[in-house]
Computed example of a mutant assay.
Amino acid sequence: MRAIILEQVDRLLAAQSGAAALRRLEAGEWPEELWEALEGLGLPLLLVPEELGGIGLGWADAAAVWQVIGRYAAPAPVAECMLANGLAAAAGIEPRGGFSSFGQTAPFGRFAAQLLLEPAPGRLALHAPGAATPGQNIAREPRDAMTPGPLLAEGALPNSHGPRALRLGHALLRAALIAGAVEHALALAVDWANTRKQFGRALAKFQAIQQQLAVVASEAAAVSVAVSAAARAVDSRGLEGASFEIACAKVVAGEAAQTTAATVHQVFAAIGITEDHELHHTTRRLWSWRDEGGSERAWAGEIGRNTLAQGGAALWPDITARDIS
């Protein structure tokens, strides 16, 4: 099922993405045609159990889809909707139609049909959207300050997801999107290096360029593995039980975003920063998603504090005892 969905999502986004589509999105235009196609695939309900009308797949499946969405610079906020609907369903709230966003600084909040909030640790509330104060991140994606409207439903999350499920889920989502964007930036750079010539040779023939591309390739592999491990841990132990793996994934993703953006722009030189080039949109999303869901500094600090609290003798047994198979 995962392979079928990934193939369909990749084909759909390849046909309806690109710099022109991203510019329209950044100008505030809702991608109606693409959204209807994504809904037709059932993506907003991928994490929702079948008994609530969803597809009933797991977090590892969702993370794989998020990587594909990140590869195309997320031309529609379906990943955010998947997370909101999945967490709502985990709290016993039946998903509703339309786009679901989350948080009081909500991704694409101005377009939301419902808004998911965390009124107390371990509890979620679904509201009709109230007033929206428009805002943007560095990528010019809408990040709107929301006033919640009437309460539609509420429920309690299972203990395995813990008291900060929304933050942990958001961190995993952004790490997965970064993983996909890093892969895409690498692919763009490799293609450019193989076609652009200097001094009569393709850029890829120069050892310095090869070394730069190798660095980005290692970052792409590292963040993909970290995201996959974190998502499998969530399937095995819930969001709170996988907090260490999620924190590690977000740290690795943040570092990969920084290194990738800096390196691929060196390979491309000036053309990569132009508004018409795909790389321009991809790297702005890398910078934005790096901070959202908690920066690598914030999550590294949490890992460090927890390690110190347990004591040095517990570090290796704690790491080696983790089972994410």
Rank of each mutant, 00 (worst) to 15 (best):
E219F: 02
A229R: 15
L83C: 08
L172R: 06
A145V: 05
A262Y: 04
L57Y: 11
T259W: 00
A261M: 05
Q210T: 11
F244G: 08
A221K: 15
H127Q: 08
N85M: 05
D10L: 07
Q258P: 00
A60Q: 07
L315Q: 01
I55Y: 01
L46Y: 01
D144T: 06
T307M: 14
G169D: 09
G272Q: 03
F268G: 06
Q104N: 02
G58V: 06
A120V: 07
I5L: 15
S288H: 00
N137K: 08
L172H: 02
L166N: 04
E245P: 02
A247S: 15
G293H: 03
V190T: 09
E183L: 13
A208V: 13
M82C: 15
Q198G: 03
R196P: 00
P31I: 07
L157C: 14
G122M: 10
A37Q: 04
S288W: 00
A106H: 06
L34I: 05
G311K: 12
A193R: 08
F111T: 05
S325V: 03
L203H: 09
Q266V: 14
W287A: 15
R123V: 10
R140H: 13
A175H: 08
A89P: 09
A300W: 08
I271G: 01
I273D: 14
G180C: 00
H265W: 03
V264A: 06
L172C: 04
G149K: 10
R305S: 10
A242V: 11
A175I: 06
A176P: 13
P121G: 10
I178W: 09
G312H: 04
E50T: 13
D10I: 01
S218L: 11
V225Y: 03
R290P: 01
T147N: 11
E292D: 09
A63K: 07
R24M: 10
L45T: 11
R290N: 04
V68L: 01
G92W: 04
W192N: 06
L177Q: 14
V9R: 12
L126F: 07
P317A: 11
R140V: 06
R174L: 13
E29Y: 05
A231Y: 13
A106V: 05
L213S: 05
V223G: 08
A257C: 02
A261T: 13
P163I: 09
A230F: 13
C248E: 14
G254S: 08
A313E: 14
P49K: 01
R24Q: 15
L203V: 08
A84P: 02
H161Q: 04
A62Y: 14
A300E: 12
A106G: 01
F206R: 11
E240T: 04
E255M: 11
F206C: 02
T260I: 02
R174T: 14
R237E: 07
R290W: 00
A220V: 10
A269N: 05
R96T: 08
A202V: 07
A88C: 12
R123A: 14
I69L: 15
A89E: 08
A204G: 07
M82H: 07
L38D: 01
L115A: 10
E255C: 04
E296C: 01
A89D: 03
L6H: 07
R305G: 05
G58T: 02
Q114P: 02
A314N: 10
R237W: 10
E51N: 15
Q310W: 02
H170I: 00
T259M: 11
A179Y: 08
H281V: 09
E245H: 14
R164V: 12
W192M: 01
T195V: 07
G42R: 07
